[in-house]
């Protein structure tokens, strides 16, 4: 599904991501973990086209996608959520998800201005599909509420529904459980496995170790932009190097 080949990113003198290679097999859940500032979000930005690579290759479904714009990457079937939620101010939850249908619908300026019967049909389809997604995520009752005024967990759900609306083949989730309580986190875990069962490959960044160990098929560990381990959860938990990194930190110490 996705393959990174020796990906590098420098910000001025800072090597934010250095020589990272791994692949994400289709139909799997892969997690990227690492201490704060390890370069996880930067890695996502590189994959999704928000940042340009300094060197290396990103191959998505057999196609090199480095250098493409984010919207082109999205059209190819990759969707993402953001660590710091980015919702559309002034749009309802339903509308926000409807925008997510953008790449799966066609009406342009002319069609939009003249509202032809073909666009009615498309509009109805967009609305129905979006509503279904809100139901899937359990926030259908907030369809007509302004998305930015929802509770934090619901905002994350809207963001995820919006990403799913693009009918992605690969979904990038940047800390989907951040700021959620343990029940909500467990719920997110079940949701992610469900998404995987729908045939969508998932790559996620997450600090909550119990969630990561629970649901991922494989884990990549980053530290200071370098990949230091890649393995199944059980082995990662026993990997001395990984333990060393996390013991160096105070927060995650208890978790591992």
């Amino acid at each position: 599904m996705l393959e990174l080949k020796s990906v590098h990113k420098k910000f001025g003198g800072l090597q934010a991501v250095g020589d990272v290679s791994f692949s994400v097999p289709a139909g799997s859940i892969k997690a990227v973990i690492g201490p704060n500032g390890a370069g996880k979000t930067t890695l996502f930005n590189l994959i999704a086209g928000n940042l340009n690579l300094s060197s290396g290759k990103v191959i998505f479904q057999g196609r090199e996608i480095q250098g493409l714009k984010p919207h082109q990457v999205a059209a190819l079937g990759m969707a993402r959520t953001f660590q710091n939620i980015k919702l559309f101010h002034g749009m309802t939850a339903l509308e926000s998800v409807m925008v997510g249908r953008h790449v799966r619908s066609r009406a342009g300026f002319i069609a939009g201005m003249f509202h032809s019967p073909a666009t009615w049909k498309e509009e109805k389809e967009i609305r129905d599909k979006s509503m279904q997604l809100l139901e899937l995520l359990g926030i259908a009752e907030f369809a007509d509420t302004e998305a930015t005024s929802l509770a934090f967990g619901q905002q994350r759900a809207v963001e995820m529904a919006r990403a799913l609306a693009t009918e992605p083949k690969l979904l990038l989730l940047d800390e989907p459980a951040a700021g959620l309580n343990i029940y909500e986190t467990a719920e997110v875990g079940r949701l992610i496995t469900r998404i995987r069962d729908m045939g969508i490959t998932v790559l996620l960044v997450e600090h909550d170790m119990s969630l990561v160990m629970d649901i991922s098929d494989e884990i990549v560990v980053l530290s200071f932009g370098q990949k230091i381990a890649e393995d199944v959860p059980l082995s990662i938990q026993q990997n001395p190097e990984v333990i060393k990194i996390y013991l160096g930190e105070d927060e995650e110490e208890a978790v591992v």
Binding site: F82, K86, L87, F88, H102, V103, R106, T166
Partner: peptide
Amino acid sequence: SRVGRALRAIHGSEEAAEAIGV
């Protein structure tokens, strides 16, 4: 229409709009 929603999305967050293919 679809275009109108995309425009409002751009207003809301250009980065997020790009990320869903606008």
